[in-house]
Nucleic acid binder design. Structure first.
Lengths: 345, 345
DNA sequence: TTGTATGCGTTATCAT
DNA sequence: ATGATAACGCATACAA
């Protein structure tokens, strides 16, 4: 049983092929009698007719496909984002092509080209692009929206995440609790991750503001790992915190994200200290883990799912030509206080 | 700057459009002089030529797109699977359309139809299909491969996961450690999740074999949740274990997967008992959490990433018509012993 | 070794 | 209210 075409439907319904097209697309400017409409619809159903997307695309230049670029879906922050975008996209007839770039510029280029070949209608970035040149070029021919930290240099729609403020929130919270000696633990702070840098900048700024600039210890991994699994960030948090504890005394640890904070928490408990009694820990992102482990980790929420949907709305508006504006939207981050932070002793 | 077509390339290179096609597709049966090859390639590069996938598909009937059906990417088991498939697919020029079905049959149908519209070349299921009728129909016109529990009734390629054996492994391990009174904690055991049932069946079989059939307590959620986030399974484990502890004495708890086991672990510790000294806990799947939390959870590994790649190989073989066989491959599960299980006291 | 011509299955314009 | 017809951009059989 081969796939039926609109010609087959036309034959069965005893009408012309163009009539079939009119009926199936509900063309407003063409009027079709109810009788033929029913005939066509019935024939289409009987034949299990599915329009050929290639032929359709050739005429309309729309694929109803969007590309989603993320570092890796194994990092629990991205499934939240991925799922909200995918689900919302599906409700609008779009499918999502998932691309795990590992934050590697060569992979990023590879995927951008692959998406171009597949004629996606638009691209959503779940993080700040690393290959600015290429992305900017592509953004000129194709709608692109970024869900993440804004980079002033890139003229692309951004649904922002104010990481600097987030850094401020967390560190001020600790300072308010009486903490003076604080460590910031992070995966690599290279330029490939803007939000990590900005979180740290927010922390540094706040420490300075409170005259504690000499009491901040920064420990960061130096190299991005080549292959990802979910353990990389936890291990980073664990390892760096372990060596930190061997060297210095601090009363609070800030992980660059919840995964790193989770690793830090493990390291602290491993050394026989109690959280939050002996030491406070906090992270960023408000992933499910920060809520579900004991003690729950104080963190910052970014309204990821809201921002993701907003990004898709914006993307579709641009795809359908309803807007040309390049603008930025920024949500204010929200501090979520849990059991892992308490008064410094 | 509009997108260049092969005609544009032909003009610039001073050759015919078909020559361009021959060169760009490296047709083996056609011989082209080096000189024209270079001319064409240069023109293509200069014009930033990207073949129109619609026109190409219209001729070749291939989209280089594959659909991936999973329950939800927010459950940490699926990102592992998703990433290995996506990465491997990309290396072969395929993009993956991600579909989160939430194990709901209406969503499953919706996505299957959407994938058909998008003319995917094949579909990979990351779980046992629920809508057997529809899937079986589609499998007749389109390659479909399942990575998951085999269902004897469905004639579809399956890269198996022997959940019965996995259930045996875990329960025999506990029995070997001297545990007699054991609880099995699970999300819903409805027919929409074959692997859950089979895991339990393996456990029941083993208990019987050891004359402990009356010492097994089964506690399962009754309703699948409508909307998913990662907390559902953890909460299920936590809640069911809490009420279990209030009712009966057991020395070991088996979670239907690592997430449920994690919740169970939290509940046990919450009650002031120690794992594994007072009680043993184990799960299934070997997700990163089972390794990273303290104590590490004894679990069963299913070689997900291997099986995923195998599934894609098989799918591509079928897409390219290299094989028509419907067969099953089954990996034996592997028990991974960690700190959460110990001798019964 | 290369060019010409055709058709894939739609959408949409123009007739009728 | 409907039908005939012309693209869309490519792959490929056939000619030269």
């Amino acid at each position: 049983m081969k796939k039926a075409t609109s010609v087959d439907v036309a034959k069965m319904a005893g009408v012309s092929q163009s009539t079939v097209s009119f009926v199936l697309n509900n063309k407003a400017d063409v009027t079709i009698s109810e009788a033929t409409k029913t005939k066509v619809l019935e024939a289409a159903k009987k034949l299990n007719y599915v329009p050929n997307s290639f032929a359709k695309g050739l005429k309309t230049n729309q694929s109803k496909l969007i590309g989603l670029m993320i570092p890796t879906v194994t990092n629990p922050f991205y499934p939240m984002l991925t799922q909200s975008i995918e689900e919302y996209a599906a409700s609008k007839g779009y499918n999502v092509l998932l691309c795990n770039t590992y934050r590697r510029i060569d992979k990023e280029k590879f995927y951008l080209d692959l998406l171009l070949e597949k004629a996606v209608d638009g691209i959503i970035y779940g993080f700040t692009p690393n290959f600015n040149e290429h992305v900017s070029n592509i953004a000129r021919q194709l709608p692109v929206v970024i869900v993440g930290e804004k980079d002033e240099n890139v003229k692309i729609n951004t649904i922002g995440l104010n990481s600097f403020n987030a850094g401020e929130l967390v560190s001020q919270h600790l300072i308010d609790l009486g903490h003076k000696k604080i460590a910031f633990i992070s995966t690599p702070l290279t330029k490939t991750s803007l939000s990590r840098q900005k979180r740290l900048n927010g922390v540094i700024y706040t420490m300075k503001k409170n005259n504690l600039e000499n009491n901040l210890i920064i420990k960061a991994q130096t190299e991005e790992r080549e292959t990802y699994d979910s353990t990389y960030e936890i291990e980073t948090g664990y390892d760096l915190t372990s060596s930190l504890l061997a060297e210095t005394e601090v009363t609070a640890v800030i992980g660059v994200n919840d995964m790193v904070a989770f690793g830090a928490l493990n390291a602290i408990i491993q050394k026989g200290r109690k959280v939050p009694q002996d030491m406070s820990v906090c992270g960023f992102d408000n992933i499910y883990l920060s809520k579900m482990i004991k003690p729950g980790i104080t963190t910052v929420d970014h309204f990821t799912s809201h921002r993701s949907k907003l990004a898709l709305d914006l993307l579709i508006d641009r795809i359908s030509g309803r807007t040309d504006n390049i603008y930025r939207i920024e949500y204010e981050p929200l501090l979520v206080i849990r059991e892992s932070t308490a008064k410094a002793k």
